[in-house]
């Protein structure tokens, strides 16, 4: 089991620590409901040190072969979300890519896929991979009113800078990005610097939030979580996860083209339960149209912003009936599940 370098600091601050993807991480500080609403209405920050971070060096052509989106962009831009696909066009991982130069990129991976990705890159190319995950803490500051609390950096959305300053501290990377649906910045810094940043954010009245709030925020937006909503058997078309440029060549493209031509059997949809229904269907629960099973749930949570249960799952493409209410059985009771498109808020 790994743990975030900020664990001690966060425990002092009352963090409820728990396991996520093999890491001991802060799951909540107060209540995820409050932390979630802080991001939607004001601002909060997350420790994301579990996320895999890789530096990949080598020939651009080799990188292009691995990544589903074109790297044909300016230095200092992020490309993504994008993905590594297997030959069946299933997700090896969904990733964020940072273009440092024509022969160097940085990649953020899902925590559970870090080692698998390193092996996959090495197996499929002669690229050099350096694992930076344990060198830097990653902090994301996210929120609707973030710029009321912090000075806006001179960065467009999905742009980044290396070896720069954040709150007068030297940081390795600063980017304008996030995974909550709100504006924000993400920082990679050494443990010592990250601890200073933690203090400085608190002094600016920005409070920490845990991974439970991050999970409910991403579900409202319809963002997937690898292992729950996508895996190596799911392709980007059925996931409706537009992570590829079909005009370029990459591993899995051949199959992807075939899938696009033939269509898909299932597609990812969002859903909402009725207001006042205080229950959560879990991963694997069946979705039904009358008595017929037509799909299943992959993620669900209670949305404090909508005050109702939301989630996502897959239904047969014959039953991707947006606006129609399918049903789900939770502990012998049937509930309406309204098929909805993303974002759910």
């Amino acid at each position: 089991m790994f743990e975030t370098p900020l664990l001690k600091t966060e425990e002092k601050f009352g963090a409820n620590i728990g396991e996520f993807a093999g890491w001991n991480m802060p799951l909540a500080f107060t209540s995820y409901l409050e932390e979630h609403l802080a991001v939607r209405k004001e601002v909060a920050f997350f420790d994301l040190s579990h996320m895999g971070r890789l530096r990949v060096k080598g020939k651009r052509e080799e990188m292009e072969k691995l990544i589903c989106r074109s790297l044909n962009t300016e230095k200092g831009k992020m490309i993504g979300p994008t993905a590594f696909l297997n030959d069946n066009a299933g997700f090896v991982d969904d990733i964020m890519t940072y273009k440092v130069s024509d022969d160097e990129i940085l990649i953020v991976t899902n925590a559970i896929n870090r080692e698998k990705d390193i092996k996959w890159i090495t197996d499929n190319s002669s690229l050099n991979v350096e694992d930076l995950t344990f060198n830097y803490v990653m902090i994301a500051i996210q929120g609707k009113k973030i710029w009321d609390y912090l000075q806006k950096p001179d960065l467009e959305f999905l742009n980044f800078q290396l070896n720069t300053k954040f709150l007068d501290e030297n940081v390795f990377l600063l980017s304008r990005s996030g995974w909550t649906g709100e504006d924000g910045i993400e920082v990679w810094a050494t443990k010592e610097t990250a601890e200073k940043i933690f203090e400085k954010l608190l002094n600016k009245n920005i409070k920490p939030a845990g991974l439970i709030a991050r999970d409910s925020l991403r579900q409202e937006m319809g963002f997937v979580l690898y292992g729950e909503d996508i895996d190596d058997k799911t392709n980007p078309i059925e996931a409706r996860y537009w992570v590829f440029d079909i005009s370029k060549e990459f591993i899995g493209k051949e199959k992807l083209v075939e899938i696009l031509k033939n269509g898909v059997r299932k597609i990812r949809i969002g859903f909402k339960l009725k207001k006042g229904v205080r229950t959560i269907p879990r991963n694997g629960y069946k979705l039904k149209a009358l008595d017929t099973e037509v799909g299943y749930v992959t993620s669900s949570t209670y949305s404090p912003y909508l005050s109702r249960t939301i989630g996502m799952g897959y239904v047969n493409s014959s039953h991707a009936l947006f606006g129609y209410s399918l049903s789900v059985v939770i502990r012998d009771k049937e509930y309406n599940v309204k098929v909805s498109d993303f974002p759910l808020i």
């Binding site: 409820n16 799951l27 909540a28 209540s31 995820y32 409901l33 439970i212 229904v277 205080r278 229950t279 959560i280 209670y302 249960t309 502990r331």
Partner: peptide, 11 residues
């Protein structure tokens, strides 16, 4: 309750 964390519903 601390182990369960945020409780959002009850039967």
């Amino acid at each position: 309750q601390k182990k369960l964390r945020d409780i959002v519903g009850i039967d």
